[in-house]
Design a protein around this nucleic acid. Structure first.
Lengths: 242, 242
DNA sequence: GCGGAAGCTATCGGATCTGATAGGGGTATG
DNA sequence: CATACCCCTATCAGATCCGATAGCTTCCGC
């Protein structure tokens, strides 16, 4: 089952939380962009830390989890934890869903009827999640959500973060002091503007914009405007909204 | 001071947590890429919900918070909450810092001597944070961190998320079913590869790669390869690591 | 005053992306 | 068996980016 490593401890905690809430099926994913399972210290899938022998558990093993799934769409778009109950979705704040997605959520006969899901966003634009699901018949998760979502979210974040550190190691953190102008240019680049457009907006010549971008690329240690903009966004210098 | 809105309630909670831990100065930022202060329902800065009248509090008002700051560099790079104590930094896992940044952290004579900081990552690559700082003399935050970081992190996440929803509204969530090929192309594009490079890697013709990218752009409702790749990364289809 | 950094501008050619347009083959679902 | 969708390929011209290289002013701290 597990040793007594930190990861195993955290996994145990997740499992116990689920059991005590009547949501014994626990599924975790440290990076939904990757098909590879989350691994522990010994290189074994952390899934082995949980109970995946029950009938409904077969659902989680299907690769289909990764695509065309209403739940994953919600994970991709929501920051807060949320619950899922026979097609209905709720969170701390109202969740707006397109009719198409809602239809899909209702129509698909999931083996899982109710669940609490915690999306986890890590540095480097990594997206993970922890799902606590009921086994067989549904459970009214709304009161459970109200009472426990905050703690579950915290536990999920800590667990996924531990998995991530294990997989990728701790990065060396440096201070990259971007200039005001560099940040201005980066924001506009990230907005999809052309160098000449940016020049017009900022009242500069086009070569100047390129100059600033080159400086920014060097400081962020990236090549190409795409990578540079991406890194600036990851680090929070630039927002992608508006 | 505040009404009885949800945001005010959450802010009150943050403040009370800080007080009971001996970290009465609370600073929040819902988006570190923006200079604008976080606003509440009535369009007033949420800072008014906290106590910013103390001497040390002046520090937080300086715009310098946003640039050239060791603490912000940590917020940008860390997913877990962390503590800060006279230049020393710690978290649940070891934090690697370049000598340069460490030097900066020690040398700068912060008015704030000890603090617990919770970075918050939201959808759309938004980065926020909540800081609980001591007032005047330092506090040994290590035991406090061990005991309370998980809860503080959860509270911070919920508060910042509420601010964010308030500022930008709830997005309508849709399912965008990207194809396997489209995702493959997006991953390589996000890695900075050229269309022809991608074609070679995937064993395709260059026009085919462009075809898939165009499809992906349409599905993600973005224009240009930069925006498209960015959106795919945000939604967790693509990871930026390796 | 001098070094250093920010900020600004310019030119060049080659590599690359972009939009518009036009197909054909394969497979699943009704 | 028809429709839809994925997957693949092609061509064209124009817009855009990229690397290398060179020079300018201004402001700051030592």
């Amino acid at each position: 089952m597990a040793g007594n490593s930190e990861l195993a401890q955290l996994a145990l905690q997740l499992r116990e939380e689920g059991r005590s809430l009547g949501l014994p099926l626990v599924a975790t994913c440290a990076d939904i962009s990757s098909a590879r399972p989350t691994l522990d210290e010994r290189g074994e899938p952390v899934a082995s830390l949980f109970d995946f022998t029950r009938p409904a558990a077969g659902y989680w093993k299907k690769g289909d989890l990764a695509l065309r799934n209403a739940m994953v769409a919600l994970i991709r778009n929501l920051g807060d934890p949320f619950y899922y109950m026979d097609g209905a979705v709720g969170s701390w704040r109202p969740v707006k869903v397109t009719p198409r997605l809602e239809e899909l959520g209702r129509s698909v006969n999931y083996a899982v009827r109710s669940a609490i899901i915690a999306p986890v966003r890590l540095p480097r634009s990594t997206l993970g999640a922890v799902v606590w699901a009921s086994d067989g018949e549904g459970v009214d998760v709304r009161p459970l959500f109200e009472a426990h979502a905050l703690r579950l979210h915290g536990l999920a974040a800590r667990f996924i973060s531990a998995c991530d550190t294990l997989a990728h190691g701790a990065p060396e953190i440096d201070l990259c002091a971007l200039t005001r102008r560099e940040v201005q240019c980066l924001k506009l680049v990230a907005a999809g503007k052309t160098d000449s457009e940016i020049a017009t907006i900022l009242g500069l010549a086009t070569p100047t914009v390129r100059f600033h971008m080159k400086k920014a690329s060097a400081k962020l240690e990236e090549n190409g405007r795409l990578r540079t903009a991406q890194r600036a966004i990851e680090l929070g210098y630039v927002s992608t909204r508006l």
